[in-house]
């Protein structure tokens, strides 16, 4: 069981790096969906106190539905309507951003070994995985130009926050559920609507076209 949890954490980080290197939007959406599904399994794998099982099931089910199915479906619809397939020229190239991502992973491991965990029973990979995923998400949002890629970056960032939230799921389960699921659902929903308008207004989802406003 423990090695299986290890595997999940490692896969999540590998997916982070893959996303930084990937230019095909379809593959990226699918990968984010897989990451979401993997993360959905975590609350069930990590649950320790049986009275929290109900919350774990709720969190897992909600995460699977939103991260694994609903949002990927929304994204696929968006790229089909805008008929785009690739992220063309990111602000920072694919290889450099992957290197930056790898540096982030290393720093996340170094940093989290210095933060004392109040709960000794927590899994050792949890904090570094959360921090490296947050970092990957930030990199994706900042360096990519297509609106879909930026939303995917936001999703990855949220995935990182979600992993961290699992540390607290025994202490304040309702807060974690409300936080990560509500935020994700609501924010992406509004972003989806705006994306639809961008596509209609500019006939593209390229945020490069959104450059009329500057000083």
């Amino acid at each position: 069981m423990a090695s299986f949890v290890d595997l999940v954490f490692v896969l999540v980080v590998v997916i982070d790096l893959f996303l930084l290197a990937s230019s095909r939007l379809g593959a990226a959406i699918r990968t984010v969906a897989i990451q979401g599904a993997l993360l959905a399994a975590l609350p069930l794998l990590l649950v320790r106190e049986s009275h929290n099982l109900g919350h774990a099931v709720l969190l897992a089910g909600g995460a699977l539905a939103i991260k694994g199915f609903f949002i990927p479906w929304l994204m696929f619809r968006a790229i089909r309507e805008a008929s785009i397939r690739r992220e063309m020229e990111p602000v920072i190239g694919f290889v450099p951003s992957m290197v930056l991502g790898a540096v982030g992973v290393a720093l996340a491991f170094a940093f989290s070994s210095r933060l004392p965990l109040p709960d000794a029973g927590a899994h050792g990979f949890l904090v570094p995985t959360a921090l490296s995923t947050v970092w990957t998400g930030l990199l994706l949002v900042v360096t990519r130009k297509k609106a879909v890629s930026q939303v995917l970056g936001f999703l990855v960032l949220e995935n990182g926050v979600y992993v961290f939230g699992l540390l607290l799921s025994d202490v304040m389960p309702v807060m974690v559920e409300a936080g990560v699921l509500l935020d994700l659902f609501a924010a992406v929903f509004v972003m989806g609507i705006v994306m639809f308008h961008i596509n209609r207004e500019f006939s593209s989802l390229d945020t490069e076209k959104l450059s009329a406003l500057k000083d």
């Binding site: 947050v134 936001f154 705006v194 450059s211 406003l213």
Partner: peptide, 17 residues
């Protein structure tokens, strides 16, 4: 629309942090 997108994306990032 451009302003809305920037507002939404940047503030959402901030709020996630």
């Amino acid at each position: 629309l451009e302003a809305t997108w920037k507002y939404l994306l940047i503030c959402s990032l901030g709020i996630a942090l």
